[in-house]
């Protein structure tokens, strides 16, 4: 038997191994932002009326790193992550919020109910700031360092056990 006859069998084995190795890991479950490592995109969002909005010029003014949290009052996981955001704010990291496709009244009600860890809140009514950040949903949190460069993207809600890791990252980019 010539060894070439075994080529199909080898190809099958390779395919089988490849597919098996990828089975547990669903493909492209989350689309990561390509903005990590790049400066914050230019944006300027209005505020809630009684408090200032958020613009790219508010980020990276030389002080320590800040978190930018995309949230919405209609988003369930955002409620789940509220205590963790509070913990991060209490640890001394400034957090700014960007509310996605939301109304000031709903946001106020949300903050009254679930707590308000935010320094500034920008209203992203039509989702353009989210696109500028390369964000694909809420909740999502970006770490921006003192020079205004995006250092980290956290997709989905921040779970209690992830708070320490985010604190560590924030200290790293001080």
């Amino acid at each position: 038997m010539s060894p070439a006859r075994l080529l199909p069998l080898l190809a099958l084995a390779a395919l089988g191994l490849f597919l098996a190795a990828n089975l547990g890991r669903p493909q492209q479950a989350t689309i990561r932002s390509a903005m990590v490592g790049k400066p914050v995109p230019a944006f300027a969002l209005p505020g809630l009326g009684d408090r200032p909005g958020l613009a790219s010029t508010d980020l990276g003014g030389g002080e320590g790193p800040v978190l930018v949290n995309f949230f919405a009052s209609w988003c369930l996981p955002c409620r789940v992550e509220a205590p963790q955001l509070k913990a991060l704010a209490d640890a001394g990291i400034p957090i700014h919020g960007i509310a996605l496709r939301d109304s000031p009244e709903d946001i106020r009600a949300f903050l009254a109910r679930h707590g308000d860890p935010f320094r500034r809140i920008g209203l992203d009514r039509d989702g353009q700031a989210a696109i500028a950040f390369g964000s694909s949903g809420v909740p999502e949190t970006f770490l921006v360092d003192g020079r205004g460069v995006i250092r980290l993207q956290h997709q989905g809600e921040i779970r209690p056990e992830q708070v320490a890791e985010i604190l560590r990252e924030a200290r790293r980019w001080r």
């Binding site: 689309i31 990561r32 932002s33 390509a34 790049k38 500028a132 390369g134």
Partner: peptide, 10 residues
């Protein structure tokens, strides 16, 4: 520009 934000996936 969109690729710069979301990567080639978009």
């Amino acid at each position: 520009d969109l690729i710069a934000r979301y990567g080639d996936w978009v």
